Simulated assay, not measured.
Amino acid sequence: MGEAVRQVLPANAVAPSLVRRHFRGWLAALGWPPADTDDLLLAVSEAVSNAADHAYPPHRPGDVVVEAECVPGANGSRRVVVTVLDEGAWRPPPAWHENRRRGVPLMRACTESVDIWGSPSGTRVRMVSKPVPV
């Protein structure tokens, strides 16, 4: 339906804004509706932020990979499937986490589905957008 995209970014504080800019252009080229674009960009940005904040220990650089493709859906619809990958290790949540731990619920609210797989060798987040008309 559309060319898949892949972006490799350093897992740092700038990564979410870079991925938003890149994916906004890609979604615009697909003719993705603006409100649905905003929801999907928020979900992807949050997944990238989580990798930047939690995947790697302080002062140990790492990458976050974002891949996406537009796929046909049922009844003349289409969806975007986004995968966010890192090679970090799961770390315990910070002791002080007020105003934290809202990222996954936010991703779930902005997409049709979110699946998260974590292991000692990295984390994979797969999100499927809400359907939009072709």
Rank of each mutant, 00 (worst) to 15 (best):
M1S: 13
M1Y: 10
G2N: 09
G2E: 11
E3Y: 08
V5I: 14
V5E: 09
R6T: 13
N12M: 00
A13T: 10
V14F: 14
A15E: 02
A15D: 01
P16G: 06
P16S: 08
P16Q: 08
S17E: 13
L18P: 03
L18F: 10
V19S: 13
V19L: 14
R20D: 14
H22P: 00
F23M: 15
W26I: 00
W26V: 09
A28M: 06
A29I: 02
T37W: 00
D39N: 12
D39R: 14
L40N: 03
L41H: 07
L41K: 07
A47R: 01
V48G: 02
N50T: 05
A52L: 03
D53C: 03
A55W: 10
Y56T: 08
H59Y: 10
H59A: 15
P61A: 11
P61S: 12
G62I: 07
V64G: 06
V65M: 09
E67F: 00
E67L: 12
E67G: 05
A68R: 01
P72C: 09
P72R: 13
G73D: 09
A74G: 04
G76F: 08
G76C: 07
R78F: 05
V80T: 11
V81M: 04
V82C: 06
V84E: 00
V84F: 09
L85Y: 04
D86L: 08
E87H: 15
W90P: 14
R91Q: 15
R91A: 15
R91E: 08
P92V: 14
P92H: 12
P94S: 12
P94H: 10
P94D: 13
P94C: 03
H97T: 06
E98N: 06
V104M: 03
M107C: 13
A109Q: 14
E112R: 15
E112S: 15
S113P: 01
V114E: 01
V114F: 00
D115E: 09
D115H: 01
W117G: 03
W117V: 03
W117A: 07
S119F: 01
S119N: 08
S121E: 14
S121M: 05
G122P: 05
R124W: 02
P131Q: 04
V132I: 10
V132L: 06
